[in-house]
Design a protein around this nucleic acid. Structure first.
Lengths: 207, 207
DNA sequence: TCTAAACGGCACGTGCCGTGCCGCTCAGGA
DNA sequence: TCCTGAGCGGCACGGCACGTGCCGTTTAGA
């Protein structure tokens, strides 16, 4: 009898696992990341991961339903706590700090290419897309929206400031340049996007 | 001796092809699009395309170096002339018209899923990425930039208006919502992005 | 200590890859 | 008009990775 309630929960988050089993899981994810960096996600095979980890293929298939799910778990395990927002009271400075950090993490080496491959895989595999959204995209977006909302409540932004639209305008151009035009992202570019957004969306300089 | 100068040129653009050979090429691309719509890009195989088109696999490999290249050629053949900008003199109205059309074409059925798969494939295959940029992304971006530049010269935009940044802020959120958050794009959303951009980037209402 | 689950290793059938080879078709030049 | 060679469809091949069985061993927990 399969425990349906935990079937789609990332394996290593389940309770009741032995110490050994947890270690085995970590080894497989480490092998996945190693091979991913060496040969790229496209050429990555579960057979190769199993060989590298010294594990049987069953041991992998028992934990993850697909290569994409394994890769997603492995990548996200590197960034457990997520990217948290500073709150200095200055919304623009805080956004700069946070988005610069996000850009450095997600577009540069060593994670950049792997994260791009994960987003690409999400286009083919609905399960990966859902998990990516649920476990990374949405939590991250929520943090941005929450920080913006607080600034709005403090009067730093106009009352009709559209939080979700601002979120998309902050993130969209960065993904666009990474995945479509393949330009390198700089801190200066991040600043220019933020400036363009606020100059137009009703920012009020703190009194 | 391979003709290096045309090696990477899309097959059907080469000169000196017989009528028959051209027709065969079109049949293969048509079969590719049919199968792509039926089973999706991920499950598409060159064997299946060959069978559907009543062609030998060699006939496909002679024309395209990879599944991605075949798919790119097939998709772009549907939109030969590209999306052209209207020029009514009103930059905001023209942007609305054009970007709404682009969103309808690239995010809705039947092309939307196929275009998303193409962008995803570009993340894995540098040749596909280069060809997609050269033959679609860049020409399309150039048209937007050209239209914005004309508006700037006519005084509808401020002299220091950053054309490329505006281009990224117009396109980025749309790609972001299609590929990352997977929200459906509406004309209203396009309008809100445009409004947010211009309210902040120095638009001057025509005298 | 005992038992059942998880394990590594191996093998299997399947699907698709990219590439040979075969014999046919057909367009273009002699 | 005939000849020739490139392009063609069809077939077969070795190779790889898939996902799944089975086997005998290890290991965690009762």
């Amino acid at each position: 009898m399969i425990d349906v309630s935990t079937r789609h929960v990332p394996y290593r988050y389940r309770e009741g696992m032995s110490e050994t089993r947890n270690r085995r899981t970590e080894e497989i994810m480490r092998a996945t990341l190693e091979l991913g960096q060496e040969i790229g996600y496209a050429k990555l095979s579960i057979e190769a991961v199993a060989a590298r980890a010294g594990a049987g293929k069953h041991t992998i298939y028992r934990r993850w339903p697909s290569k994409g799910a394994l890769f997603l778990d492995s990548l996200l395990s590197l960034n457990e706590p997520g990217l948290d927002y500073p709150d200095t009271g200055d919304i623009i400075a805080d956004l700069r700090t946070q988005i610069r950090a996000a850009v450095d993490l997600l577009s540069g080496p060593p994670l950049g290419p792997l994260y791009q491959a994960l987003v690409a895989e999400a286009q083919h595999d609905p399960q990966v897309a859902a998990a990516l959204n649920e476990r990374f995209i949405t939590p991250q977006a929520d943090k941005t929206v929450a920080r913006l909302k607080k600034a709005r409540e403090q009067g730093q932004l106009s009352p009709d400031f559209d939080l979700d639209l601002a979120m998309a305008i902050l993130s969209g151009p960065l993904y666009f340049n990474v995945m479509i035009t393949r330009q390198r992202l700089t801190h200066d570019y991040v600043d220019r996007v933020i400036d363009a957004l606020f100059a137009g969306m009703g920012v009020r300089p703190p009194a």
